[in-house]
Design a protein around this nucleic acid. Sequence first.
DNA 1: GATATTGCGGATCTATTTAGTCCGAGATAT
DNA 2: ATATCTCGGACTAAATAGATCCGCAATATC
Lengths: 161, 161
Amino acid sequence: MKLPGSTEWLLHCATSLAQLEPGETASAAQLAEYYDLPAPYLAKQLQALVRSGLLSATTGPRGGFRLARAASEITLLQIVEAVDGAQSPYECREIRQQGRGALPPEECRRICVLAARMADAHRAWRKSLAGVSLADVLAELPEGAPARTRSLLTAITPQRR
Amino acid sequence: MKLPGSTEWLLHCATSLAQLEPGETASAAQLAEYYDLPAPYLAKQLQALVRSGLLSATTGPRGGFRLARAASEITLLQIVEAVDGAQSPYECREIRQQGRGALPPEECRRICVLAARMADAHRAWRKSLAGVSLADVLAELPEGAPARTRSLLTAITPQRR
DNA sequence: GATATTGCGGATCTATTTAGTCCGAGATAT
DNA sequence: ATATCTCGGACTAAATAGATCCGCAATATC
């Protein structure tokens, strides 16, 4: 059970975008250099957030990414599931109905007890992440952090390297 | 984020073993045929539970696996982590300290806010699974289930197929 | 209106993990 | 004592995720 390594990238990128002024954007190349990440791969991952409606992207010179809605309306769960999908890590393949010990269909009308408990755990995980928005994260950063992020991020010029 | 398919196998196998009489055992071959699973591969996975101290194995003719302690003292979390490991699905690689936007070390004494929230979610997941024991699972099965499981499972003779 | 910059999607290649198989060491009932 | 049955770990193949590259469409700037 492992989340893609890009999950960390996108959580941090989204946090950075949340610190920009309204209307301001940051390109994939800027974000990549800001965090020292492989630019092409990061760009591909950012697209997943756009497809999920969390970010909006503008093309052309001085284009880039911005949040598609207020930071308080974007949760960590939405970002994680945009990257990794929303499926539960435990997949019930109904082995209780296979083999010599197969249960009769009438006993399988209810969900398997084990699958139910695993689903409970997944629900607890999702609830925890759904309770944290990007605005909550920003509130925990030190005083001058947004200004610092903005100036460092937007100062990265294209064509470097 | 995906758990191995064998997680389901082992949860069900442990549940079956919990239904045996004290001292009774079931071999990997019996369990495999009971659930129609590839026997050698299942045997390999069962060893992980032995290494974790959840099952005890006896070799020789009429040997096999049994629970290493009472069903009420074995939780779903212990089984899942024996199969998949206990590590969190989210791994913080401290990208906040890399690249042009790297934070100064004095601001990184505390854990990254995002890593802390992801750890909270993992803790909620573990707590949910740790709250369910094999005895709890057995309590939800229909009336005659243990007797049925015992008779079907132990009736499987070696050398078949 | 030409150009450079940027996001977007597809095709491709590699590496890691997972799935599955095999054979040998050890223990026990006969 | 022996033959058989068991676990245990080493080994091989398939699947999945990670990562990269290239061409296309769109837009602000010159």
